[in-house]
Amino acid sequence: MNQFFLHQPHSKELFGFPHILEFAIRKNSTIQLNSLSSITSDCIRIYYVMEGKFEWVIQERHSILYPGDVAVILPGQTFQGENDFLDIGTLFWIHIKVDRVEKNMHLVLGKWSGLSESERLTIGRVLHLSQMPVLVKMKSIQTILQLIQTELFQQQIGYATRVNQLMDELLILIARQSTMQSNLQRDFPQAFVKLEQELRKNLAHQWTVEEMAAMVGLGTTAFTEKVKSYTGFSPLNYLINIRISEAIKLLRKDDVKVTAIALDTGFYSSQHFSTTFKKLTGYTPGEFRKRDSLKD
């Protein structure tokens, strides 16, 4: 595999792809001191190890990468060589620009990506949560990177679309692999508690079943079935349960307004909140609040 190095703004192959900051294969045959000191990434960096052994520290976690392994460094994460230098070996990498990062690792990717907003949100969250900067044995990443390389150098009909599609595919594959790796898909109760904690952390968000399923690494059908048999509820009804339990806590604090409670716990409106609350508890939020503050 020949070495090459494309980068903005100099490489003409990257004209029309301002979101690809760097794209390269590098064969490193000598060690240079301080060649890989600590940096904080401002883009998504994906490294694929083709040859050699690399010892890196990503977000303060020590990792050793072997051929076939992939390192993913997200915006804001720190990255350095274990000994501040780049080890001997061959790397294939791509740096992808993100327009900005909103709260909860919501990666705003720019118009090139065909991923829907909710898919991007899920991918960002999954990568962020998995705490797994290194994905082992992912030969498929090399295949995609090679296809991107071919498209960029040959520039046949439709290559611009193709390159962007391949980049989306890259992100999807990485997100899937990282959920698979972060929970072994054995202990459902454990995976489900992890999910529940995420839901509670951000109850105001309009969670979709797709997003929830992605967090435990299942498709929506399998996820729904599993949640139903484990909890007794469909995923969305389970979510309503959590929303109402949180709402009850807030209702008992006299200083929080019902509308604020509704929105904080993820209901569209205070009307939607009241109807659901009444249906479940037999009280309207107002009646419930009155009931528990009247005593004593």
Binding site: Y230, G232, F233, I244, S245, E246, I248, K249, T281
Partner: peptide
């Protein structure tokens, strides 16, 4: 039947959300 979770915020802790249990039961 229906389930509710147990939270372990510290290694020795084992807690459950009383409202969640109540709502789950009622539901």
């Amino acid at each position: 039947k229906a389930s509710y979770p147990t939270f372990h915020s510290e290694p020795d802790y084992s807690e459950q959300d009383p409202e969640q249990i109540f709502i789950t039961m009622l539901y």
